[in-house]
Nucleic acid binder design. Structure first.
Lengths: 204, 204
DNA sequence: ATGCTTGTTCGGATTCAATTCGGAAATCAT
DNA sequence: ATGATTTCCGAATTGAATCCGAACAAGCAT
């Protein structure tokens, strides 16, 4: 970004640009949105875009960062509560909250997330994965039996990466083959089965 | 523009364009590759690109289609063999074969796959999912006990979508947190645990 | 308030990639 | 081998991305 916004006025401009980028991405995806469109939506001149952003990609990265930060901010406060639930309930609570979050603002974030899984973009989502990994870890700490599970890192890797992608894809589906509820059940069952099968029959 | 190649000569040109597109995408991703680069790699003039493709996106779609067809062609013949194995072995065999396939040609396909998970592109990958779904279904048919499993469609949806994404992401990882082998083990265990937990203790 | 410095906005000018198109070259059919 | 068809191409056009210096606004003394 060429400059740092010093005054309140320019902070608002940067903010308007990021918001506009999210709207444009949701509407048409990043590759189809032009700089002029973003400027128009933000209600500013084209040239102003480049005062605070190196190029179009930098704008999209900032928009992605906004999404990621909001997502993390949604997950973090849930952790203390989720950690006390059994696996199925924790998974269900998390997924329903996540869905509601993605559906907000007329699916603004869901429609953006559709474009976020190019593995080049995915690095910017790392904070989300870290937050979920944190949740996973803290859950294990509150259920020490589960620390005996084999392959915990690989399990978490698959569950988190595969889970986020699958949920976003399912919610984006035009005509889903099955309901979200069934998916939530399976998500919970898979993890619970793994734990119960590998350990014995714990879990209240 | 958008003509059909009639002669052998032009078929070769179209082929060269598709190959060139795959190479370019692997190197820099679609949004960073220019029409001129593709033409240069293919060893043809820029204008020739537009004889058989509407625009740059159409070229990328064709490249994607090539990848998808090759992938399906890799999966299909495996099915009869996989269907006779126990879950863990079947999953392992499939994943190792899939990895080798992605690693071919100096990771050409792996490096392309990195860019294929934007959910706009993902529709073109549907044949891959169908092939995997077919494998899943036929596996169940050969192990009829498993037909009693609850939520099979949702299970398959999560397992296939999440699995493909996770594998490609892991293989693309610069410095993986865990080995591919651990991931394969978890993939097998997760599915086997679900089956064994839900049914009783089947599976040889 | 006034003058000065710094921060901000903007749109015309520039640059570069995508796409078009008409003519030249190759292939085909007779 | 000649006319018809197919293919190839690169110069010209188009449009989006980016730059930049003039014009405007805010901060801050005095």
């Amino acid at each position: 970004m060429a400059r740092k916004p010093k005054q309140q006025r320019s902070k608002a401009t940067v903010d308007a640009i990021v918001e506009a980028a999210l709207i444009a991405i949701a509407q048409q995806g990043p590759s189809a949105t032009t700089a002029r469109q973003v400027a128009d939506i933000a209600g500013i001149g084209v040239g102003s875009l480049y005062e605070y952003f190196e190029d179009k990609d930098a704008i999209f990265e900032a928009a992605g960062a906004r999404f990621v930060d909001d997502t993390v901010a949604m997950i973090k406060p849930l952790i203390p509560e989720l950690v006390r639930l059994n696996i199925r309930d924790a998974v269900a609570k998390l997924l329903f909250t996540f869905r509601d979050f993605l559906e907000e603002n007329n699916q603004l974030y869901l429609k953006c997330a559709r474009h976020a899984f190019s593995l080049d973009m995915v690095i910017y989502q790392e904070p989300i994965n870290r937050a979920l990994m944190d949740l996973f870890t803290q859950y294990l700490m509150h259920h020490p039996d589960m620390l005996r599970l084999p392959n915990i890192p690989a399990l978490a890797y698959f569950y988190i990466n595969g889970g986020v992608f699958t949920v976003v894809r399912h919610l984006s589906e035009q005509q889903p083959t099955q309901g979200f509820d069934e998916l939530v059940t399976v998500f919970g069952d898979i993890l619970a089965s793994y734990a119960e099968h590998k350990l014995g029959l714990p879990e209240a």
